[in-house]
Write a protein that binds this DNA or RNA. Structure first.
Length: 420
RNA sequence: GGAGAAGUACCCAAGAGGUCGAAGGGGCUCCCCUGCUAAGGGAGUAGGAGGUGUGAAUCUCGCCCGGGUUCAAAUCCCGGCUUCUCCGCCA
């Protein structure tokens, strides 16, 4: 969330910055409520100060065995007033929070202005899509004829948007995320294997709640949510903690399954591995000093790109425009992989700097040399989406006879160099 | 799932309705003495959030979290979370 003080003291700036995003945000109402909040605080606190002094006086009288009944009577009245003011204050406070929690992060100055993904800016490209001498097949057709995916049975045992991987397919998926984890840990990221279910506080800390509850799977009769991304458990590792300045940046990578309700995506990407209720992902997470979080975003993005470079799959990096940047993010690069069946680039990673937006929600700080604490900046990015990588491998390395050549870097993980 | 115990500052720990923002240790920082791979003495060491106001300050809230009782709560009551022990169950 944004800093309440910053918002109310820089209303024009904030209003202007948020106008570049999609959606409308009640900045004025926040300012009004904040004034109301302050005046209520002033009132209660002076009454509480009075209460405290009189309580001390009563205590002193009692110790001397003197009568304090008159004071006590007066205090009953004062106590009632305080209670009433506190009640009013908490109404104002929760309304204020409700509004503030729904306000997205302010995008960084480098972020291009725009409405939607059409206004995103291509930053760089790697390699060129292969010119096939035959009509390339989509990965779902390849996978089905190779017998490595079983969607009918996935639908039987679970439902739509689930996949059963089988034989070489299961092995390939496992090879892909093992390869990614090895690459990242060799690159200085500490591997984490977190729980797949988290509590409400964690979902709030990274910004999924309260606004996006309908996109999440909530486990019935519990307070647990299935994680939509490892970002949630891994970022929340340090919730309510004070890190030391010298250990920054803290770098984690984590493989997890991810669960998304995909509410509102009916009819999109219904075939194949692209859009699933459960998918695998390797995530990169950083806790950075505020001064260099944008440099850390560059290196994090590069670290994710390295995976596709090593595999030899064409991709491009896109800087999201203001209208397309996610709720909690102040700057996001998407890495898009070339997908022959779509005949376009498809998102395979989203690398974001959240500034102090998540850190303020989750209360993650560091202690500087002067002993003062400040919020860290949090970052994360997929490194990468595993299922989409598998799909990209199948499509980009397919041969005319329907077999798949396994990229060299992956062969020691798969144990085979071709699927046929 | 059942039964019991506990959660106080960096750590250990006292506390049992008013004198407690919290004794006492340990650790850490500084000073003194001593002098060498010791030891002793002294001082400091709640952080945080939020009001009002400012080169000072002051007030409010903070003893796991959330409610409640009371003029007054670390202390009493209710709910929750976590940890430990025993039983059950289980990978």
């Amino acid at each position: 969330m944004l800093d309440l003080r910053f918002v109310t003291e820089n209303i024009d700036f904030v209003r202007d910055a948020l106008s570049k995003r999609s959606g409308r945000y009640p900045i004025e109402e926040i300012a009004v409520l904040n004034d109301e909040r302050k005046s209520l605080i002033k009132e209660t606190e002076s009454k509480k100060a009075q209460k405290n002094t009189v309580s001390d006086q009563i205590a002193a009288l009692k110790r001397q065995k003197s009568d304090a009944s008159e004071m006590i009577e007066n205090m009953k009245v004062l106590g009632g007033e305080i209670k009433e003011l506190d009640a009013r204050l908490s109404v104002v406070q929760s309304r204020l929070e409700e509004l503030l929690f729904a306000v997205p992060n302010i995008t960084a100055p480098y972020v291009p202005e725009g409405k939607d993904d059409k206004d995103n800016k291509e930053i760089r490209k790697f390699s060129v899509p292969k010119a096939f001498s035959f009509a390339p097949k989509p990965h779902w057709d390849l996978g089905e004829s190779l017998g490595i995916f079983d969607w009918p049975r996935a639908a039987k045992i679970s439902g739509a948007r689930f996949t059963v991987y089988k034989g070489a397919g299961a092995r390939l998926e496992r090879a892909v995320y093992n390869f990614m984890l090895d690459a990242h840990t060799e690159n200085g990221y500490t591997e984490i294997f977190p729980p797949y279910m988290v509590n409400r506080d964690s979902m709030f800390g990274t910004g999924q709640l309260p606004k996006f509850e309908e996109d999440m799977f909530h486990v019935e009769n519990t307070n647990y949510f299935l994680i939509p991304t490892a970002e949630v458990p891994v970022t929340n590792l340090h919730r309510n903690e004070v890190l030391s300045e010298s250990e920054l940046p803290v770098k984690y990578c984590a493989y997890t399954a991810c669960f998304r309700a995909e509410a509102g995506s009916a009819g999109r990407d219904t075939r194949g591995l692209i859009r699933q209720h459960q998918f695998n992902k390797v995530e990169l997470v950083k806790f950075s000093h505020p001064e260099n979080s944008f440099d850390e975003l560059e290196s994090l993005t590069n670290d994710a790109e390295k995976i596709l470079q090593t595999l030899g799959i064409p991709y491009r990096v896109v800087l999201l425009c203001t209208g397309d940047t996610g709720f909690s993010s102040c700057m996001t690069y998407d890495i898009e992989v070339w997908m022959p069946s779509y005949n376009r680039y498809v998102e395979i990673s989203s690398c974001s700097n959240f500034g102090d937006f998540q850190a303020r929600r989750a209360n993650i700080k560091f202690r500087g040399e002067n002993g003062k604490t400040s919020f860290v900046h949090t970052l994360n990015g997929s490194g990468l989406a595993v299922g989409r990588t598998t799909a990209a491998i199948l499509e980009n390395f397919q041969n005319e006879n329907g077999s798949i050549s396994i990229p060299k870097a992956l062969q020691k993980y798969t144990g085979f160099d071709i699927i046929k």
